[in-house]
Design a protein around this nucleic acid. Structure first.
Length: 359
DNA sequence: CGCATTTGACCCCA
DNA sequence: TGGGGTCAAATGCG
């Protein structure tokens, strides 16, 4: 409900991020088909450049304050509103160490908050996977029931990923989504891609794209604080780590160009990505890459690839995020992204010719 | 007809 | 024992 205040700096950043988003989109398009490896690389480096630039802006304070402005308006106005992007951010949740039935032993679980601009009636979260609802329950202390979903491919492929979706008390359009486990299911397209004798370059690029998405997941997980989750409504506000946009069903047609608005179609590459490193679809090398900041010491190529993936993913997240109308603190999300970026330690000495980028 | 959702019962853990 | 997570039969939808 607020409007995008004349926050000039933030706007610039948003513009940059929008730009990145566009590039990512193009990149994906090229990856999908005939795009040449070189072109993909070029796009990737452009993305990297703009990313750096954005980061610089943010760090230098161009993107200042209004740490808690609503990104909603921003989104509405700036980025293609055609691509609905639900937004989600991660944070700790009022988790109550729920280790019930299935000893949630080693199950990974991460939570994200998704805002559905589609309205109260539209459950959000089309994260690229197909989910099947298997239960719903009233939760003590919560105004809204919690929905339980499991991967549609649970039976066919034994994918044990599950998620819980619950509307928040404060804002009925915002959902807390808790993911449990990892997707082990393989989707057609993904499987095909993995098996096809694609050119190395394309394959690599494709993987990168996958990771682009998976990166989001990984980050979310990483941000998911271990044991000391705080309880109470303040949890989210206290540490809103991450945000990413996702489409809101009903608002607009699934945008195939936007990896984050992937509809629940398995064919989506995002699917594999989201399933995290364990995904069989992604080759070992890539699968493991996400957060192994292999970058740091590795060779140039390695560094670039790894970094790129991370940067792009973080960027995209920030992009969609910032540009999306959200009640969540946009700045916080950026912070999160930054911290994520910091994770790989951007080499200050690494310079990029941005001009070529705008040429 | 097959698949997804709904919903009450059941099970398990703190 | 209560709360939360899952099961599974019933029902709805394409």
């Amino acid at each position: 409900m607020e409007s995008m205040e004349g926050n000039g700096g933030g706007r610039l950043v948003v513009t940059e991020l929008s730009h990145i988003k566009e590039l990512v989109r193009q990149l994906e398009g090229h990856l999908g088909g005939s795009g040449s490896p070189d072109l993909c690389k070029h796009l990737a480096s452009q993305i990297f450049s703009v990313t750096e630039r954005s980061i610089g802006m943010i760090r230098s304070g161009h993107f200042d304050g209004h740490r808690k402005r609503s990104a909603a308006a921003v989104a509405a106005g700036d980025l293609d509103s055609a691509t609905p992007s639900p937004l989600s951010d991660v944070s700790d949740l009022p988790f109550k160490a729920t280790k019930k039935r299935k000893t949630s032993t080693e199950k990974k679980r991460h939570q994200i908050r998704v805002s559905s601009t589609g309205g109260v009636e539209n459950p959000p979260v089309d994260d690229g996977h197909s989910w099947r609802k298997y239960g719903q329950k009233e939760i003590l202390g919560a105004k809204h029931p919690r929905g339980y979903y499991r991967c549609t491919h649970r039976n066919s492929q034994g994918c044990m990923a599950t998620k819980q979706v619950q509307r928040t008390d404060e804002d009925a359009t915002v959902f807390d989504v808790i993911y449990h486990g990892e997707h082990t299911c393989v989707h057609k397209a993904v499987a095909a891609g993995a098996g096809k004798p694609e050119t190395d370059a394309n394959a690599a690029a494709e993987s990168r794209l996958h990771d682009l998405s998976s990166g989001l997941t990984v980050k979310i997980e990483g941000l998911t604080a271990p044991p000391q989750q705080q309880q109470g409504g303040g949890g989210w506000n206290a540490m809103p780590p991450f945000c990413l946009s996702s489409p809101v069903s009903g608002l607009a047609p699934p945008d195939q160009h936007n990896p984050f608005s992937a509809p629940s179609t398995p064919e989506n590459r995002l699917a594999a990505a989201a399933s995290s490193a364990a995904s069989p679809a992604t080759s070992d090398s890539m699968a493991a890459a996400p957060f192994h900041q292999a970058a740091a010491g590795g060779g140039d190529a390695a560094w670039r690839d790894a970094e790129l993936q991370e940067v792009v993913s973080a960027l995209v997240a920030a992009t969609t995020t910032t540009a999306t109308a959200q009640p969540a603190p946009a700045a916080a999300m950026v912070d999160a992204d930054l911290s994520a970026l910091d994770a790989f330690e951007f080499d200050p000495g690494f310079t990029i010719d941005i001009t070529s980028f705008f040429a």
